[in-house]
């Protein structure tokens, strides 16, 4: 029984059957990659997991609880954090403030009317945020405006913000899309380090096979809205069906 169990999920947009009969089981503490050609339904599936979309049929269980019908913030509070394809951070705020917000969300919940206390007097929050910035190697940038960070730093900050919530499942949507090779390798190292040092499950949607095979210990291949196969990386590499559907495309 995995930490995330997707059963018979289907989703239709007008005449397009984006997902049909998707079954997926993400094991606890694994790095699970979901790959597939363009239009395979990867992003639709991800949006069904985080509450942005509600599937037409099927069930999505996280740690034994259904996530269906819950708002994104509720699902996040259950322990699923999401990293976006283009980094979504608070551009108008400083790097430190960016890191403090998820810490506050973790401590105070989804809404807290704390309008009198000084936010810079919240020692526990500041310490936690500083520690996480340290871990992300961004401590020297703490007073910078987040919008002025480089693309790679924005990605690090976003991952750090997600981690400071201590999620049980981290979802990444093509985290290296549009990155230079060096930045891509840095991100791979960072994610490896995260999965080695923390008890965290990572599910990653990725196009870049280099990233997938360096990180994943379980892979699901989606094609035309249905999982083609779910297996270990070695078996995926040699699977002729996968080659035909996806790898053949780039070969």
């Amino acid at each position: 029984m995995g930490i995330l169990e997707v059963k018979n999920v289907g989703k239709r947009f007008g005449g397009l059957q984006a997902l049909s009969d998707v079954n997926l089981s993400v094991r606890e503490n694994s790095v699970h990659a979901i790959i597939g050609p363009n239009g395979a339904g990867k992003s639709t599936l991800l949006n069904c997991l985080v509450g942005k979309l509600i599937p037409d049929s099927g069930s999505v269980m996280f740690d034994g609880q259904s996530v269906l019908g819950r708002a994104p913030y509720e699902i996040n509070q259950m322990g699923i954090s999401r990293v976006f394809q283009t980094p979504e951070i608070f551009g108008d705020l400083s790097v430190l403030e960016n890191m403090m917000i998820p810490c506050l969300a973790k401590r105070d919940g989804s809404f807290e009317l704390n309008a009198i206390a000084n936010v810079m007097g919240q020692r526990d929050i500041i310490e936690k945020a500083e520690r996480m910035l340290e871990e992300m190697n961004m401590a020297d940038k703490r007073h910078m405006n987040a919008a002025s960070l480089s693309r790679g730093d924005k990605r690090r900050l976003e991952i750090g913000m997600c981690l400071s919530q201590e999620p049980r499942l981290l979802l990444l949507d093509e985290p290296t899309a549009g990155m230079a090779r060096a930045d891509t390798n840095n991100t791979i190292d960072l994610l490896k380090q995260i999965s080695d040092q923390r008890s965290i499950t990572i599910a990653i949607i990725e196009h870049d096979m280099h990233v997938v095979f360096s990180l994943a210990n379980r892979i699901t291949v989606l094609a035309q809205g249905t999982p083609l196969v779910e297996d270990d990386p070695e078996n995926i590499r040699g699977n002729p069906k996968v080659r035909e559907a996806y790898l053949g495309e780039s070969a």
Binding site: N76, S81, F84, E88, F90, A117
Partner: peptide, 25 residues
């Protein structure tokens, strides 16, 4: 302005998407 509440209000202005995916309503 200086409170955690004020910081959340600035977060609303800055990026509501990130806010909702950070467990904040």
């Amino acid at each position: 302005f200086r409170s955690p509440f004020g910081m959340m209000l600035r977060a609303v202005k800055s990026n509501q998407q990130r806010m909702n995916y950070t467990g904040l309503n």
